[in-house]
Amino acid sequence: MPHRCPTTESAPARWLLIGLALLLLSLFLLLPLLAVFVEAFRRGAEVFFAALHTDAALSAVRLTLLAAAISVPLNTVFGLAAAWAVTKHRFRGRALLISLIDLPFAVSPVIAGLVWVLLFGAKGWCGPWLAAHDLKIIFDVPGIILATVFVTFPFVARELIPLMEAQGNDQELAAVTLGASGWQMFRRVTLPNIKWGLLYGVLLCNARAMGEFGAVSVVSGHIRGKTNTLPLHVEVLYNEYQFSAAFACATLLALLALVTLGLKSAVEQISHQGATRRT
């Protein structure tokens, strides 16, 4: 009668590895998260709430919500259309199209801002025309939205493409055979199958849209109360040595991250349960 299974480690080795992983992750993940809240409340709750209740902070929150409210729906519609085109149909150049959709992941956020400056900045290609028509994109809200759309571009498509690829076309073909219209098929057959993957993609897209820093920093011009998003507002406060205020605003973004992670785990669990029930 063997005392331990030969295809696993001895108990001490197991606990050593678990302990090491826990220690590393606590130092590397939990401690930074804890530090955000400790630093934010270092000078008391009064300073904390005062920092959140300034006009600059409120306008930064509004701009962050606006950028997400525009870029997330746009990229969700794009993600659905792109996934529909590349997974339900076969055509030449399909593999290339899938690679191109992933392209923004390989682009530095700074470059995602730079491209818009080169197009629409004062010395950019369309700069003189924009100036002549009294239009402003760079150092203004439209530039921030364009930069956010660029960096959040692939998130929904990236979740949907592998999922829809794995599900195949059988159910859609059955629906068409039974006389369903395109819209009916999408709403009654495809959407229920992909809803969790879609939600997952939207969550990640939204987290990135609200938290983006590099790309919007290049196009924003850091005009307080006008073109600062919440992450940029955090940077401005930090560079002015208003550390408690910077961390107070950072707690909002840390909470956003925690809510995203919580919802993400919940979605994973629900969709996993659904999958096992079906089989």
């Binding site: 992750l25 993940l29 939990l30 930074p32 998260l33 955000v36 956020p109 990640l204 987290a207 609200m210 938290g211 983006e212 820093f213 590099g214 992450p231 940029l232 955090v234 940077e235 950072a250 973004l253 840390a254 956003l256 991250a257 925690l258 995203t260 992670l261 919580g262 993400k264 785990s265």
Partner: peptide
């Protein structure tokens, strides 16, 4: 779930 924190936490934070 925590492993994804660096993905979800805004880089400035």
């Amino acid at each position: 779930a925590m492993v994804d924190l660096p993905f979800a936490l805004p880089t400035a934070v």
